[in-house]
């Protein structure tokens, strides 16, 4: 039995006169892995930022478990709400005045860092380095480690494999798959990487023109009749 965890209902979001999300509806189910795909600039990152509460939507509502419309939360409740999420930002967003050890301690003070480092394929020596001394791919993996270390209720990954070489990308995909399948963490992944989709997505949402144009099981993605999505998938494969 699928249980709804996050309900996005009729949300609108525009900047000045640019409409990004247009009465968008989306349900995220507990312990499932949802992949959001769509062209660059279609609003995938904006949608996840709205879900996390970093960005206020114009109208509509987003509910999370028992919380009804997260826009109405007080400052304190909002902080509390955001801490339920572990987020890998599109550009990693590591704190660049702190070294990697301090960055990771931010997410979790108690856990040992050795295990998580080997899971994301990084050497110990990286701990004393600063984010600016790492490659983009390494930063991404530190960002992923930070998101996972929090032991979040919901994991949000904005393009976890972009900018990685195929071997590391595969390793990351397997790591996420493990989190999704074994630990049953609810996961929302924004991705351009169809390998990620095939590897660990349960469901897929295709975002275009401000709405979810197609939603369905990841296994059935190739049977879809939505022409723009077919084009999109073919285009990137």
């Amino acid at each position: 039995m699928r249980k709804k965890k996050i309900i996005v209902k009729n949300i609108n979001k525009s900047f000045k006169n640019k409409v990004v999300l247009k009465k968008l509806n989306l349900d995220v189910f507990e312990s499932e892995s949802l992949s959001i795909i769509g062209e660059s600039g279609s609003g995938k990152s904006i949608l996840t930022r709205c879900i996390v509460g970093l960005l206020d939507y114009d109208d509509g509502s987003i509910s999370f478990g028992k919380l009804d419309n997260i826009k109405t939360l007080s400052d304190k409740e909002k902080m509390n709400y955001m801490s339920k999420f572990g987020i890998l930002f599109q550009n990693s967003a590591l704190l660049d005045s702190l070294n990697i050890r301090e960055n990771l301690k931010f997410a979790n003070k108690k856990n040992s860092l050795n295990e998580i480092l080997s899971e994301v394929g990084l050497p110990q020596s990286i701990l004393e380095k600063y984010p600016s001394e790492l490659s983009v791919g390494m930063q991404k993996r530190v960002g992923l480690a930070r998101a996972i270390l929090k032991k979040p209720e919901v994991l949000i990954l904005d393009e976890p494999t972009t900018g990685l070489d195929p071997i590391i990308a595969r390793q990351i995909n397997l790591l996420i798959k493990n989190l999704v399948r074994k630990k049953k963490i609810t996961t929302i992944t924004v991705t351009h990487d169809m390998d990620s989709v095939y590897e660990f997505a349960d469901y897929v949402a295709f975002l275009k023109n401000g709405i979810i144009e197609w939603y369905g099981k990841a296994r059935k993605i190739n049977q879809s009749k939505n022409s723009s999505m077919i084009k999109f998938i073919k285009g990137i494969n």
Binding site: V52, M79, F85, L94, D96
Partner: peptide, 20 residues
């Protein structure tokens, strides 16, 4: 410094790490 943290989403990251 703070401006850079803002535009590179480091401030957003702080918020989600339970840090005001």
């Amino acid at each position: 410094e703070i401006g850079t943290m803002k535009v590179t989403e480091q401030i957003d990251a702080l918020k989600t790490l339970s840090t005001n």
